[in-house]
Design a protein around this nucleic acid. Structure first.
Length: 528
RNA sequence: GCGGGUAUCGUACAAUGGCUUCGUAUGCCAGCCUUCCAAGCUGGAGAUGAGAGUUCGAUUCUCUCUACCCGCACCA
């Protein structure tokens, strides 16, 4: 990538009304971003293009728009509740998971930690094993992992990780094969209805049980103790961490109402929320973001051809965004890194200023989600082929897109600093179909009423045709061109004295700075 | 979450324990001027992220918080 920095982009975005820090006036809120007039137009142009390419232009695709708030069972069935809880460690042997801070005694390790870290770091500098030979690479790498983990986690987490060395056994299987401790819960929680309802009180012997929405208390001899805050209250709902589940939960509705031929897909655009530990890199990783997702339902025998079809479509999409081919990379996720539900995944990556990073994903999710819904709801997710052959639960190919990541990639790849006649300029070479302002209309001079009047006519005409057309009579003509360059306006239309005589205008091109004389009658066609 | 850095008009930078509380450029607003690539003139609005502390006095020193950037980690 070039030497464009994220700060250059962020600065331009703020200065020209694309993107602002969320809640900025109150000091901001980490991981949130607000779109200004130009930003929202750019973003919409991108998501509208997506909708057109993947829904409207296809016979096998249908749109839906599910609620953000969904029954908590959605997230229980999908596995999100289970895996998105407090810091956990997993036993790699029996896959039991434990609350790091509750399950294990950690005092001894905490005390020994600094010493152990020092020893490890020293050992890494000169990796020689007890018998004087160089240890195998895997062993050294493993040791590096330990040190990384030690640096990464503080307090109880580190301590638990130390258990690997300190021979604390898994309470379930007795083995010592702990994975890394992890913070799992990334779902935002909220509550439906009033929270402080009257608690239910019951008695048994000398003990009083008080249960309200979030806690069960036991009262013995005057002490009240929280006995459990682990269970999810019935009025708890989660903000969706992905839009995909809104599609899966409506699969049956769509089949029942439209009965599309297989294969078919459902598409959805919408906000999703993740409580990221550290939002980063401008809008790349935010706590509130927008996804565009497709679940494409297929006969399990035919998943590979569908996968290849989408892989090709994804490339067409990236091309339509105007991203340079050399900045886009496919990363085949290795089998042992695949999510448990996936049998194949390709991450599509883009060269952002902060490094190569994921812009979208393409995953074969098998029938994992529909199967889960079927078991959890007790309702059949089977598809009955119209030829009378045996019903089955369809498998799924999932292309998943992040809107902000697309916006950012488009901005990055169109941002240029070049020169016109020895003067520096900043220009966004946005594809014409994405530019927030399609064209700007200017009277050559601001103090000549006849020019203004004519320019207003032209502006009205173009505004009616394209909508996103800007009137600009600020400063002199050169300034206006530069201003429009900076926001990526592809064409500037200028009304001069010749216009008054022959009804032609000059159209100035953003990229070449060349001007052509065009009859007003041909203008719309010319700008198209 | 860990470590490092930053925070001054919209933007990019400057300066200062006080004196009239802050300069420059650009942008912005009003007016004039201007016949195609950031010309010029006049006038104007606009800032020390938030909160505490030290001090006679803090934008400046200290602490806390918040946000962003960089390096890790995380990204199911």
């Amino acid at each position: 990538m070039s030497d464009i920095s994220l700060e250059d982009i962020a600065s331009l975005c703020k200065r020209r009304g694309f993107i602002y820090q969320g809640s900025e006036i109150y000091g901001g809120l980490a991981g949130t971003w607000d779109y200004g007039p130009l930003g929202v137009q750019l973003k919409r142009n991108i998501s509208n293009l997506w909708w057109k390419m993947f829904v409207e232009d296809r016979d096998d695709m249908y749109g839906i728009d599910a609620a953000i708030l969904m029954n908590q069972k959605v997230w229980q069935a999908s596995g999100h509740v289970q895996t998105f809880t407090d810091p956990l460690i997993e036993c790699s042997n029996c896959h039991s998971r434990f609350r790091v801070d509750k399950t294990l005694d950690i005092k001894a390790f905490t005390e020994n930690l600094p010493k152990m870290q020092t020893q490890w770091i020293e050992a890494l500098k000169n990796p020689i094993s007890v018998d004087g030979t160089t240890p195998p690479k895997e062993q050294v790498d493993k040791l590096k992992d330990y040190v990384d983990a030690a640096k990464r986690f503080s307090g109880p987490l580190v301590a638990v990780y130390m258990n690997q060395i300190a021979k604390v056994k898994c309470p379930v299987c007795g083995q010592i094969k702990w994975g890394e401790p992890r913070q799992f819960n990334m779902m935002f929680k909220t509550t439906i209805g009033p929270v402080n309802l009257d608690p239910q009180i019951s008695f048994k012997g000398d003990t009083t049980f008080i249960k309200d929405h979030n806690y069960t208390y036991t009262v013995e001899g005057g002490d009240v103790q929280a006995a459990s805050n682990d269970e999810i209250a019935t009025n708890t709902v989660f903000l969706r961490p992905e839009t995909a589940q809104g599609i899966f939960t409506n699969y049956k509705n769509v089949v029942d109402s439209l009965y599309p031929d297989l294969p078919f897909g459902l598409a959805q655009q919408g906000k999703a929320f993740r409580n990221e530990i550290s939002p980063r890199d401008f809008v790349f990783r935010a706590r509130e973001f927008e996804q565009m997702e497709i679940e494409y339902f297929v006969d399990p025998q035919k998943w590979e051809e569908a996968f290849e079809m989408w892989r090709e479509r994804v490339h067409q999409w990236l091309e339509a965004l105007g991203l340079p081919q050399e900045s886009v990379h496919e990363l085949e996720v290795p089998a042992d890194d695949l999510a448990h539900y996936s049998r194949r995944t390709i991450d599509f990556e883009f060269d952002y200023p902060h490094g190569r990073d994921e812009i979208l994903g393409l995953a074969y999710r098998t029938n994992f989600d529909l199967q889960n819904i079927q078991s959890a709801s007790g309702k059949s997710m089977e598809y009955r082929p119209k030829d009378g052959s045996k019903p089955f639960v369809p498998h799924v190919i999932e292309p998943s897109f992040g809107v902000e990541r697309a916006v950012m990639a488009v901005l990055v790849s169109s941002y240029r600093e070049d020169e016109i006649k020895g003067e520096k300029r900043t220009v966004l070479k946005l594809p014409k179909h994405l530019a927030p302002v399609r064209a700007a209309v200017s009277p050559l001079l601001k103090n000549k009423p006849e020019l203004i009047a004519k320019a207003r006519e032209v502006y009205a005409m173009l505004h009616k045709e394209f909508g996103a057309v800007m009137w600009d009579d600020n400063g002199n003509i050169g300034k206006r061109y530069r201003r429009q360059d900076e926001i990526g306006t592809p064409s500037c239309v200028t009304i001069d004295f010749q216009t008054l005589e022959d009804n032609t205008v000059t159209v100035r091109d953003r990229d070449t700075a060349e001007q052509t004389r065009v009859a007003i009658a041909d203008l719309i066609e010319c700008l198209n």
